[in-house]
Amino acid sequence: MRAEDILPDDVDTGEFASTVIRKGTVAAFLANAATFSDPGAASAARAIAEHHILEAVPALRALGLFDVMEVRDPNLRHWIADWTGVGRSEG
């Protein structure tokens, strides 16, 4: 499967698991994760990245991203879990 099989070039959003998701959501999450993990990032930039990460989590969950991948940065992984419950072990 290719990206255009999911969302053609002329389509900017799709509905997955009853959630409307914009094209670019995963790329934006990765950019914000890089800012979050950058020790040299300004506190204002990090705060904006944190806000956008939390906004993206429901879409990423609807896409099934967290079912097949784990956030490698332990600080980011734990921070997401603390705020959203994503990535917490059950049992």
Rank of each mutant, 00 (worst) to 15 (best):
F66C: 01
A44W: 05
A62R: 07
P8S: 07
A28L: 04
P39M: 03
D10V: 02
D5M: 01
F16S: 05
A33D: 10
A17W: 04
S43G: 11
A45F: 11
D82L: 13
M1H: 07
D12L: 14
A33P: 03
T35F: 11
A41N: 12
I6A: 07
L60M: 14
D9K: 14
L7V: 00
A42V: 05
A27W: 01
P58M: 12
V68A: 07
E90S: 13
A17L: 10
E50L: 04
V86N: 05
A45V: 08
A33T: 08
A59H: 14
G14R: 10
A44L: 14
T84Y: 09
N32K: 13
S18L: 12
G14S: 09
D9N: 08
D73K: 02
V26Q: 00
R22A: 14
D73G: 02
E70W: 03
H78T: 12
W79E: 12
T19D: 06
L63E: 05
D10K: 08
V11Q: 15
T19V: 15
A34L: 13
V57I: 11
F29Y: 11
H52T: 01
G64S: 10
R72H: 11
A31W: 08
G85P: 03
A49Q: 07
A42C: 09
V68E: 09
A59G: 15
A34M: 10
A62K: 04
E4V: 08
A31R: 15
T13G: 03
A41V: 12
G40W: 11
L60N: 04
S43Q: 13
V26T: 02
D38L: 07
K23T: 10
V26D: 00
D12Q: 15
W79R: 04
D10R: 12
L63C: 05
K23V: 08
F66K: 04
L30H: 05
M69T: 00
G91T: 06
S89Y: 03
D82R: 13
F29L: 11
L60G: 04
G91A: 13
D82I: 00
L54R: 14
T84S: 05
R72W: 02
G87P: 00
E4Q: 08
G87D: 01
F29N: 03
G85E: 03
V71P: 00
W79F: 11
E55D: 12
I6C: 06
V20N: 13
P58D: 10
L65N: 01
E90F: 06
M69E: 02
F16A: 12
A42P: 07
T25I: 14
A42E: 14
R61D: 11
D12C: 13
L60F: 04
L7C: 02
A28Y: 01
R88S: 08
H52L: 05
F29S: 06
L54N: 07
R77Y: 01
E4G: 02
I21G: 01
L63G: 03
I6K: 07
V68D: 10
K23Y: 01
T35P: 06
V11C: 14
F66E: 03
A3F: 06
